[in-house]
Design a protein around this nucleic acid. Structure first.
Lengths: 168, 168
DNA sequence: TTATACTTTCAAAAAGTTTTGAAAGTGTGT
DNA sequence: ACACACTTTCAAAACTTTTTGAAAGTATAA
């Protein structure tokens, strides 16, 4: 396999993974493209490479910037904007974890806390089932939250070192 | 808040979370409903409670069974089938991790391994960028894979105990 | 065998999401 | 003030996913 083909495969695989995880395919593909580009690219180049429209490219790049995965670059004497991706995998992983935690885990934790407080007839089997599920899920979610918290603060080597040592 | 309202909120929250994580909303809602039901339910009851069609209920329940999250129950002298959800949160988490690993992580690891082997001109900056990204992501993915592997084998208390101890 | 009680299928409809591209907007230099 | 080079917007179109429901299938019992 040579580079050109390999690059396409990578973009495709990243796009597929993204769409399975609730990130839109194009967004994941643009990210992939920037990841494997040595230089920052213009909107035009992104449009070209992936055959997508201007509107789509613009919107997707903005969203990637919101996620903290891509940055704009300004070049002396040029009006166009260039875009490049953060290349450090650990930083990417943390960034994604951070965003999803904020957007998805936090709201769920809030609801669960409320629901865990709901009082009911302790003889009602449905109340018992409800209460047990909510309480248990709440505990699990809090553990996940704590782990993410740590991961966000940690150095990559320390994080995996610690996790994998425990598991050996 | 009383139970009826709380149950609806839980179903809604679970459905939303599911759809953000690439699991279809209805599937997550049916799962939520079964989680907070003391008794196993019939297709009819699921249809009723969530106002969904027969086809949808049938298809969704089958899919939940495929994921190993729901089981059928047969009752003496009755023809209908009853459905109930695995209630242990840790088992649910493991089951989901197991399925997603099989369906999504494994294929990506395969592609990455291939792509990491691609040879190219070590003076080409694009080759270098490509190679670095692929190699790094591959390493990260393998770490995630190892962690999941351990999680699948582990007891809940041991797993979180170990992780949280390291992080204190 | 036939009726009954249920489950499964699947093509078509509905709903939801993503993409397009032309038009509007913005900021800079002359 | 105007032209230029670029970016942003957004309504409509394309595409994808989910849902429906009627029809077909299956198993049981009389």
């Amino acid at each position: 396999m040579e580079l050109t083909e390999a690059r396409l495969k990578f973009i495709e695989a990243w796009g597929k993974l993204g769409s399975e995880w609730g990130i839109n395919r194009t967004m994941a593909q643009v990210h992939a493209l920037l990841l494997i580009s040595a230089e920052a690219l213009t909107t035009e180049q992104v449009m070209e490479s992936l055959s997508i429209s201007r509107g789509n490219a613009n919107m997707t790049l903005r969203e990637l910037i919101n996620w903290g995965l891509v940055e704009k670059q300004h070049r002396q004497g040029e009006r166009k904007e260039y875009f490049f991706a953060e290349k450090d995998t650990w930083t990417i992983a943390r960034q994604v974890a951070k965003e999803r935690r904020k957007r998805e885990l936090d709201p769920v934790l809030k609801v669960l806390d409320e629901l865990a407080k709901v009082k009911g007839d302790s003889k009602d089997p449905d109340y018992k089932a409800f209460n047990k599920s909510v309480t248990d899920i709440n505990k699990l979610a809090k553990n996940v939250d704590k782990t993410l918290e740590t991961m966000l603060k940690a150095e990559e080597s320390w994080f995996w070192g610690s996790i994998l040592k425990v598991f050996k």
